[in-house]
Design a binder for these strands. Structure first.
Lengths: 334, 334
DNA sequence: CGGATTGTTTTTAACGTTCAAAACGTCCGT
DNA sequence: ACGGACGTTTTGAACGTTAAAAACAATCCG
């Protein structure tokens, strides 16, 4: 493996000149630069990243904690990771994966990775309602950016990127409205979930804007499972109120709704329009295909990396992105 | 951030002694060791990984190429990544993610990561039938281990870990047999797929062992989609032969089978037993739940890391692991 | 008592890179 | 012709760690 020294010897210049050829080529005379570059090419030289990092104390690695999966399978994680990875590489960086316990128990792991100079900073995801990580990292002056808001108070420590759930729900409502639905229900989570309240709020506002009823049309599920989605839908339909549209807070709940509708002999997309959230792989795989709100993963990843690696000029950056409605059979005009 | 030097000064020993306290504590006198450890703790010292790597030329990072997702969503990737990460961490290592074009076009990326000393080696997955990566890496003397066989010839370059598809199919057949099925079909892929031939072989052998018919009971799907699975099932049922069991090569195809059966008024699990492969999140989420063959991810990951980081003592290691049958409603006794 | 043996600690020299400053030319204006 | 200014290249020195060898200390044995 060739080193700077060997390249320098071959090109008959000093080591520093070769270094400059790579990092500040404008400083070299044109002919020197060309000669050095020829040697670099000839010897197939690649800078040793460790030596560089040691000197500059920047490792160009970004830590990402892979969610421990028993809780709930993160159905769009592969999309997110691919996007994040690609975005990082566009800036010459890479993603370092690690595992850590949730909550404060995980903080020593974050601290350690940073203290050992294995990462420059972190991308957080799977943010929870009272996520302690943000405040902790901020306190320790460890760079990070969050995918998802903490939903605790209005001012959240550190920069974040998130998808506008309220806008997403509103888009779903408007789409169902345009295909003729007039009594649109919302399938949600308990009030304790910030994300849930964001999305239900969008549904409520959009319904009011369009002059649609909302009273008695909210059902809350205890957990995010198909079974619970089906049960909640059953409760909704048994309540005696007419329903011709269902905006579900997640794809999983939406699948539950589809199942319950089918079980009762109703045709999703024909009798009742259904939409989900996140456009997980499930959405296009079920029958009928599930209309869902896709998170703009590439843009999210791009923003995360830009914020994390950009100059942290004073005020923390906050970016709210709009999801995209992917229309499939479950919301075909009734 | 404390350094060895500062700890040494504080403990009133030489730098090397502190280094030894961490890397070869048995060399120190007990009281010295304790004194040094106290200083380490007090100053909250963490070794700088870059400096260490520079000196030892081992970065303790393992490269893993995140599959580009448009081809087919890797439904169990999050499980795999979590297991791989955890296994790596048990040996003090971490996973570095990167993206690369498929086939030989991606090789410069692998080479570059290794040449810049950003990774010690690679874990390959998503191995394709004529995957060029294994031979190429072997040729360059870049350490790697493959999750999945190349299916090209009997001797494959480098070590690998894989799941025994034939054994898995056989388990599925035997399970269906035990619940009373006697005409068990196989839903597969084109013959060009090594993985496909492995699994169909297991089905055929198991059927022969049990004295069950196989002729005319194989259907091949052009692609791995629900739609194709459903079409193939339709062809199978239309062929006039009785079928009371279906072993599908993938969960996706199995879902297609479930859909087609339901469409025809047949009850999966009651009229026809169905099994899938890989136990993706889909399997437990559909109704009825899909019986499927779970890959032992933790064990796979453990083996991969052990092989990659262990001493490459001559002959390449090859490990074939048995999947585990997860029984759900789709194969309830008929 | 002296040499060998063993156990513990220190010294010296890297690993491959970049920073900061110094050195070397070359050109210019007065 | 001389001092200054600029453009280009080289010279130390350092980043934080570990390998190898040297130094030192204690113990043992004949």
């Amino acid at each position: 493996m060739a080193t700077l020294k060997q390249v320098a010897a071959h090109a008959e210049v000093s080591v520093q000149t070769v270094s400059n050829a790579l990092n500040a080529p404008h400083r070299l005379r044109a002919d020197t630069l060309e000669r050095v570059n020829r040697s670099i090419e000839l010897l197939n030289y690649r800078p040793n990243r460790n030596a560089r990092s040691l000197r500059t104390s920047a490792v160009e690695l970004i830590g990402y904690c892979v969610p421990s999966w028993p809780n709930q399978t993160h159905l769009v994680m592969d999309q997110f990771l691919h996007a994040l990875c690609a975005a990082a590489e566009r800036t010459g960086r890479h993603i370092l994966l690690f595992t850590a316990p949730g909550g404060v128990d995980g903080m020593p792991t974050y601290d350690d990775l940073h203290a050992r100079r294995m990462v420059d900073g972190f991308v957080l995801s799977q943010t929870e309602t009272h996520d302690p990580r943000h405040g902790w990292l901020k306190e320790q002056d460890i760079p990070f950016v969050s995918f998802g808001r903490v939903w605790k108070e209005t001012t959240q420590p550190g920069p974040w990127v998130d998808v506008d759930g309220a806008a997403g729900s509103a888009m779903a409502v408007r789409h169902l409205y345009e295909s003729g639905r007039r009594r649109i229900a919302f399938l949600g989570w308990p009030k304790s979930s910030g994300l849930g309240e964001d999305r239900v709020g969008g549904w409520r506002d959009a319904c009011k804007d369009l002059g649609l009823p909302t009273s008695g049309l909210t059902v809350r599920c205890r957990e995010d499972s198909i079974e619970e989605g089906a049960r909640a839908t059953a409760r909704l339909l048994d309540s005696g109120r007419t329903v011709d549209g269902i905006v579900a807070l997640s794809d999983i709940l939406a699948l539950g709704a589809l199942r319950e509708l089918t079980r009762r002999g109703l045709t999703p997309g024909h009798d009742v329009g259904v939409t989900g959230f996140d456009d997980s792989p499930l959405a296009e795989v079920v029958s009928p295909g599930l209309t869902s709100l896709r998170q703009p993963m590439d843009q999210i990843a791009e923003e995360l990396i830009t914020i994390l690696t950009g100059s942290s000029n004073g005020s923390p950056v906050e970016r709210l992105l709009r999801p995209e409605l992917v229309i499939r059979g479950s919301s075909a005009p009734g």
